Amino acid sequence: MLLTRKIYMTSSSFLRKMTLFELFVSVLTMLQLYHFCILFSNQGFPMPLLYGPLFWAMYQFLSGKSRAVIKRDFAVGNFPFAFFVVWYWMKGDNLDWNYFQWYLPVMILGQIGYPLAILYRLKGVESKGKGFVLLKQLMALGMGIFLFVGAVFLHHYLQVDVLMGIDPIHAIAVAMVFSVFMLLNYMYALWDSTEREIVEMPAEPELLITVDDELVEYCDSELTRAMEEERLFLDAKLTLDKLSTYIGISKNIISQYLHSQLGLNYYEWLAAYRIDYAKEILSEFGSEYKIEAVARASGFSSKTTFNRYFKERVGVLPSVYREQASFT
Rank of each mutant, 00 (worst) to 15 (best):
W191H: 07
W191E: 04
S193R: 14
E195N: 11
R196D: 05
R196M: 12
V199K: 12
E200R: 15
E200N: 14
P202C: 03
P202L: 04
A203N: 06
E204I: 05
P205R: 14
P205S: 07
E206H: 09
L207K: 15
L207M: 15
L208E: 12
I209W: 01
T210K: 13
T210D: 13
V211A: 07
V211N: 10
V211I: 15
D212H: 08
D213P: 01
E214K: 12
E214M: 07
E214W: 04
L215W: 02
V216H: 12
Y218Q: 14
Y218F: 10
C219R: 00
C219V: 08
C219L: 05
S221E: 14
E222H: 07
L223A: 02
T224R: 10
T224Y: 06
T224S: 13
R225A: 13
R225L: 11
R225S: 14
M227I: 02
M227R: 01
M227K: 02
E228T: 13
E229W: 05
E229C: 06
E230A: 08
E230N: 08
E230W: 02
E230S: 06
L232H: 00
L232G: 06
F233Q: 04
F233M: 04
L234M: 11
A236S: 12
K237F: 03
K237Q: 07
L238Q: 03
